[in-house]
Design a protein around this nucleic acid. Structure first.
Length: 636
DNA sequence: TTAGGGTTAG
């Protein structure tokens, strides 16, 4: 039995007058000291002939109930308090009803019906009652209720305050009620809340969530004061919308702001942007900033840094960060495992997975994505299939589309195309475009054009076929020398007006990312770059490099083909790297599509002849080159 | 001073 005294005022006499006993089980007993009786009508005295009792004044009674409500969130207790409130007609007391409503909302978030019922008993709910209920609904599964309460309060002439607006917008974001959100925005402007920084930040996030970058920028520009969170939401908007390079720019502008500086959340977004871009130098700058600001021990930042360094092909630094984390969680381990996997250290990734279990950290879905991709990157077919089976049996994790994707990649690259196809059609989840595309990539590697055509049909069925898919098929026809089919496909693409994505390679030099397309003429140092590329080509030929003609998709003569291949964007980026950096510096190139076999060979020879470590990240993986060798031994 | 608002890792 726990005794809780409700302190109703500072006078000791009264303090001890009420004992509220809450039993450790489920019942609550509201008892009054024998000398006191609650007063139900202000200012009157209740007396009995034999035992005159002092009256517990109404306000004191209210305060004691307030204390009682504050003292518990246990649902059965609350129901008993509710009965008490009703008994003493305290329901229409705004303070008590509001406080009680808040307690109900926070104690039973899963069943909002109690709160709703209580709310309906209040004769004239104030805006604050609506706010409380709207908030509860915004975190429940009935967001439309939040919106209809908002409309109801407007109809009653109650003006929602910025906080209820904020909750309504959050509901709109959560449940993708775009038009409702737009309506609310209009109201906010009309009600004159255009200078509320927090509310505008929520709105900014609303537009950011619906890919309306321009609208989001407009909200940001019109904010009278922009604090760090507002900047962060803007940055997250750019990140979500793929404007990663602008994220770096915003980070720099933010550092020059006098009143708000980047915080730990900003750093999280910016490291993600660096990871997406493969911008190592900028990432290192952010890392230094993190240390300077004293965020270095924040685990979420460290986890993000591991991913950033891994995706920049800089595994040593990823590992340094990983080692420095005192208490590594499943995210730290998964990030490290994926980092090892994507950089071609599949066996180490599996060792890390084993080590993680020795440390009693349970793997989750994403850990297995890392482990399975490790298998696919290193051609560990048997191990991969074993992990796929054991993840559900031993760890109770059902394989998702990403896991199956890794397995299809694994089987496909190993040439087990039929088996890969079988996995897709027999898996328990609906195949998406990505998984078909993975198989299409494998068809390209192994020149399997009948299966390739079938895969395209599946993509068409999903209405998800992209120009890049046809390019893969074109690639399959061309490398198999089936020029007739290739011509037919080209005509089809032309007739349908399908534009293919141009290949683009980028290299970061001194913190600036330089982009190149095939036969690029836009770079200010283009003459030097082409001269350097010619020189490199000559040197590599001496070392035994021969252009790989199957990488050229047009039916050309040998010389024309070699010429067409010479100025691929990867080669221009590499030539610029050799030109613009001192000997020995690692060259890191990011390619938006898949690297071709010829560029792969080119990079391999370059790493030997020029004694440079070369890391190329393409759409599917990393290719590490050193001393004339590739870390994966071959192209695939 | 009735409680209640914005961004966040692999």
């Amino acid at each position: 039995m726990t005794q809780i005294s409700a302190f109703i005022n500072k006078e000791k006499r009264i303090v001890s007058s009420i004992k509220l006993s809450i039993s450790s089980s489920t019942s609550i007993c509201i008892s009054f000291h024998r000398h006191f009786t609650p007063d139900t009508s202000q200012g009157t005295f209740q007396s009995s002939n034999q035992n005159p009792k002092p009256i517990l004044q109404q306000e004191q009674h209210r305060q004691s109930i307030v204390s009682l409500i504050k003292s518990t969130t246990h649902e059965p207790h609350l129901l008993q308090i509710q009965a008490h409130i009703t008994r003493y007609s305290l329901l229409q007391n705004s303070r008590i009803s509001l406080l009680f409503l808040s307690s109900l909302c926070s104690s039973a978030p899963r069943d909002i019906r109690y709160s709703r019922l209580f709310f309906s008993q209040i004769e004239n709910p104030a805006a604050s009652h609506y706010n409380t209920l709207i908030r509860a609904y915004s975190s429940s599964n009935s967001p439309k209720e939040a919106f209809s309460l908002y409309k109801e309060m407007r109809q009653k002439g109650l003006k929602p305050d910025p906080i209820s607006f904020s909750f309504v917008i959050k509901s709109c974001i959560k449940f993708r009620l775009v038009f409702c959100g737009l309506q609310v925005h209009g109201r906010i402007l009309r009600d004159g809340f255009r200078s509320d920084c927090l509310l505008l930040t929520t709105l900014l996030n609303f537009y950011s969530s619906f890919a309306s970058r321009e609208e989001a920028c407009k909200v940001f520009d019109e904010m009278p004061q922009k604090d760090t969170v507002a900047w962060n939401v803007l940055i997250s908007c750019y990140l979500r919308n793929g404007r990663t390079r602008d994220v770096l720019m915003l980070f720099d502008s933010m550092k020059n702001e006098s009143f708000c500086i980047p915080d730990d959340v900003t750093c999280l977004f910016v490291t993600q942007a660096c990871a997406n871009l493969g911008a190592l130098e900028f990432g290192e700058k952010v890392h230094r900033y993190i240390e300077e600001r004293g965020y270095g021990s924040a685990r979420n930042l460290c986890n993000s840094l591991i991913a950033m360094y891994s995706r920049c092909g800089c595994l040593d630094k990823a590992y340094d960060v990983f080692k420095g984390i005192r208490e590594k969680d499943v995210i730290s381990w998964s990030a490290m495992i994926s980092g090892l996997a994507m950089n071609g250290y599949g066996r180490d990734a599996i060792l890390a997975f084993e080590e993680m279990q020795r440390m009693s950290i349970s793997p989750d879905e994403q850990t297995f994505t890392g482990v399975l991709s490790a298998c696919s990157h290193c051609g560990l077919v048997d191990e991969g299939m074993e992990f796929l089976n054991s993840m559900s049996i031993e760890f109770g994790i059902k394989p998702n589309i990403h896991h199956y994707g890794c397995v299809v990649d694994l089987l496909g690259r190993a040439g087990l195309l039929d088996q890969a196809y079988h996995v897709i059609i027999s898996m328990k989840v609906k195949p998406d475009a990505t998984i078909w595309r993975t198989l299409l990539g494998a068809c390209r590697i192994h020149g399997h054009f009948t299966l390739g055509e079938r895969v395209i049909e599946h993509l068409v069925e999903l209405k998800a076929q992209e120009a890049g898919d046809y390019v893969l098929l074109l690639n399959i026809y061309s490398s198999a020398g089936n020029w007739e089919k290739a011509m037919e496909l080209r005509k089809f693409l032309k007739d349908k007006g399908i534009q293919t994505t141009p290949g683009c390679s980028s290299i970061e030099i001194k913190g600036v990312v330089h982009d190149f397309v095939v036969d690029d003429i836009l770079h200010p140092r283009k003459h030097e770059i082409y001269d350097k590329l010619d020189e490199i080509n000559k040197q590599l030929k001496i070392a035994g490099y021969v252009a790989e003609m199957t990488s050229e998709l047009h039916d050309l003569g040998a010389d024309e083909k070699a010429n067409a291949l010479s100025y691929h964007s990867e080669k221009l980026a590499l030539a610029f790297g050799v030109l613009a950096t001192p000997p020995g510096v690692t060259l890191r190139v990011t390619k938006n599509l898949r690297i071709c076999i010829d560029c792969h060979n080119f990079a391999k020879f370059l790493s030997g002849v020029y004694n440079r470590k070369v890391i190329i990240r393409d759409r599917t993986r990393f290719h590490h080159f050193r001393d004339g060798h590739c870390s994966c031994n071959d192209y695939w």
